[in-house]
Design a protein around this nucleic acid. Structure first.
Length: 474
RNA sequence: GUCCCCAUCGUCUAGAGGCCUAGGACAUCGGCCUUUCACGCCGGUAACGCGGGUUCGAAUCCCGCUGGGGACGCCA
């Protein structure tokens, strides 16, 4: 194992289970994962389920599933455990409570009895007047405790002007202390707020590098204050640029699919997704294609970009096809099998599936598309494209197709190689071009004017089925 | 509105003061190959936001402007 500055690298991905794993989260997780693997460190998955209303078990399941699909295995976290368990924040409530009370005791925080309704009203009023909406610190100087439900607020120090911190990508970031309100660290329901639980856990779990989206830059000063009040050492901050939609606003549903699970369902390969995501905000010279192993070797925080990136589905599609074409046929065949299952096709003939992949892999950009195109090999009845029969199965061509049928009967080897020879001979004998019978044959075989190569189709259908199909149009 | 961040082809990016007549990739447009569609190959169009400095020299450094994004919750 390699160590950095004497300590082992420990990074974490900390999603809140209020939805599926989305593009942005996946990229953050990927960078954390690659950095950990590159450094021989540990990659921790922590579930930040401190929003009782929005967190769901279903989301947890979906996130874990997508992480696994992407191949981002974690060293500590849900289902695998680890030395700092539990990794669900909802199971660590006593810890946050203890630290929050400690801060109250030490004078770094105070109890606030203001009700949520009351505060919201004030906020709205101030907003209307164009005044700052920060908390008015009403409870900050309260002498005695009240017998009322309370939240705990952090007491923003008055003896400093700015909060500063170092960011690996942005150098020094400084924020005026007057911009920070006395924020809540423990809600009245006993749950911590994000800024608090995040710091407590990052400290306790000995996180060395915090790699997250730059929408968290604004939270960092608050977290820095907490680190300081606790007297805890600061981790290295790395704030990654955002991923935006085509209109350059935050990526959301209206930009199309954003959940990783959906991409799996649409027939994208994890290799393509990983390769696409890694190039959003990271580069390695002019290289575009990276295997996972290569990424682990080459990934470095030094060649990260700082500006936000627009998500480009076309490039993802291109990469997806690249991997469809270059990954082992057996592997693609297996994925195709699953997609065919969903269409009610249960094919256990591995050999046939692999031949189908070979026939279609240059013609499909997703496995879903491949499965649709593969249907011609499983449907008993040929579905003819509008007008195709009339245009290509003419009276002039029928006798030739009929000859094909009779001569094909005596061919024993119907491998592509053999068929090439057979047809070369067939057209030469008649003084015609293969082009003349290609489309008629294609239409007869699959009913469509576009599709896989003729020889590939005949090989996959087999001799008898091919003959049956050609004969049926005569 | 306030604060923070960002700024190279339509998009992802290379570029660490002279290798820049700005490179690669996706997309797009031509052409070739061909059995349709693809794949593949060859070629084209296309960018340093603007204005000031600094310097012999700036895409690269500094300042301002403009533009974009993000954050301003008892959400994370």
């Amino acid at each position: 194992m390699r160590f950095l500055g004497g300590t082992m690298v420990r990074v974490r991905f900390a999603p809140s289970p209020t939805g599926y794993l989305h593009i942005g989260g996946a990229r953050t997780a990927l960078f954390n994962y690659l950095f950990a693997r590159n450094q021989g460190g540990r990659f921790i998955l922590r579930i930040e389920d401190t929003d009782q209303n929005r967190s769901t078990d279903e989301s947890v399941g979906a996130i874990l599933k997508s992480m696994r699909w992407l191949g981002l295995d974690w060293d500590e976290g849900p289902e695998v455990g680890g030395p700092f368990a539990p990794y669900f924040q909802s199971q660590r409530l006593h810890i946050y409570k203890q630290y929050a009370e400690l801060l109250v005791e030490k004078g770094f925080a105070y109890r606030c009895y203001c009700s949520a309704d009351e505060l919201e009203k004030k906020r709205e009023e101030n907003q209307k007047k164009g005044l700052p909406t920060r908390y008015d610190r009403k409870c900050r100087w309260l002498k005695e405790e009240k017998d009322l439900p309370y939240a705990i607020r952090f007491k923003v120090p008055e003896n400093i002007l700015n909060v500063e911190f170092e960011d690996l990508l942005h150098d020094k970031i400084s924020v005026s202390i007057s911009e920070i309100e006395d924020f809540v660290i423990l809600k009245s329901d006993g749950y911590p707020t994000y800024n608090f639980s995040c710091v407590i856990d990052d400290v306790l779990m000995q996180i060395t590098h915090i790699i997250r989206g730059d929408d968290h830059i604004n939270n960092t000063p608050k977290q820095v204050l907490i680190y300081n009040s606790l007297g805890m050492p600061m981790p290295v901050f790395v704030h990654l640029p955002m991923i935006l939609g085509s209109d350059k606003t935050r990526l959301s549903k209206r930009h199309g699919a954003t959940s990783i699970g959906l991409y799996e369902e649409m027939g994208y390969l994890p290799e393509a997704m990983v390769n696409y995501l890694v190039r959003l905000g990271w580069s390695y010279g002019d290289q575009e294609i990276f295997s996972k192993q290569e990424l682990i070797e080459k990934f470095s925080l030094n060649n990260l970009g700082r500006s936000s990136a627009v998500f480009n589905p076309e490039k993802l599609l291109w990469l997806n096809q690249h991997y469809i074409k270059s990954l082992p046929v057996a592997k693609i065949a297996n994925i195709l099998k699953g997609f065919l299952n969903k269409k009610g096709i249960f094919c256990e003939d591995e050999n046939k599936l692999e031949k189908i992949v070979l026939a279609l892999r240059e013609r499909a950009k997703t496995i879903l598309e491949m499965s649709e195109k593969a249907m011609i090999f499983f449907e008993k009845d040929v579905v003819f494209e509008e007008g195709a029969k009339e245009k290509f199965i003419t009276d002039e061509i029928k006798p030739i197709l009929s000859d094909v049928v009779s001569e094909l009967r005596s061919v024993n080897d119907i491998s592509i190689k053999s068929l090439e020879g057979f047809f070369a001979q067939f057209v030469e004998k008649r003084g015609i071009k293969f082009k003349a019978i290609a489309q008629p044959l294609r239409v007869a075989l699959c009913g469509k004017t576009v599709g896989p190569g003729i020889f590939e189709m005949i090989e996959i259908f087999g001799k008898d089925e091919s003959i049956r199909r050609i004969s049926s149009v005569l």
